[in-house]
């Protein structure tokens, strides 16, 4: 490792704040880019499941009524 201690790696001769801040924000962005599609796909599946169940209920009730 270039830095001789974790402490030095954090400080980075004074530039550490900027560097780590940039990496933190980018990590947040990357996490959001990965999590959002997976989460929205699962949400879409759940919504469709509810819609299918409701359709089923409507069809059954129509049969029941006749």
């Amino acid at each position: 490792m270039y830095f001789d201690s974790w402490q030095a790696a954090l400080v980075m001769d004074g530039h550490g704040g900027f560097v780590w801040a940039a990496y933190a924000i980018t990590t947040l962005g990357v996490v959001w880019m990965l999590v959002y599609p997976a989460w929205s796909r699962r949400r879409a599946l759940r919504q469709l499941a509810v819609a299918v169940r409701r359709e089923q209920a409507r069809a059954d009730s129509a049969q029941g009524v006749r």
Partner: peptide, 13 residues
Amino acid sequence: LLYTPPDFRQGNS
């Protein structure tokens, strides 16, 4: 981040 030398002009930024 950790294993490359800093830039002689800009340092670690």
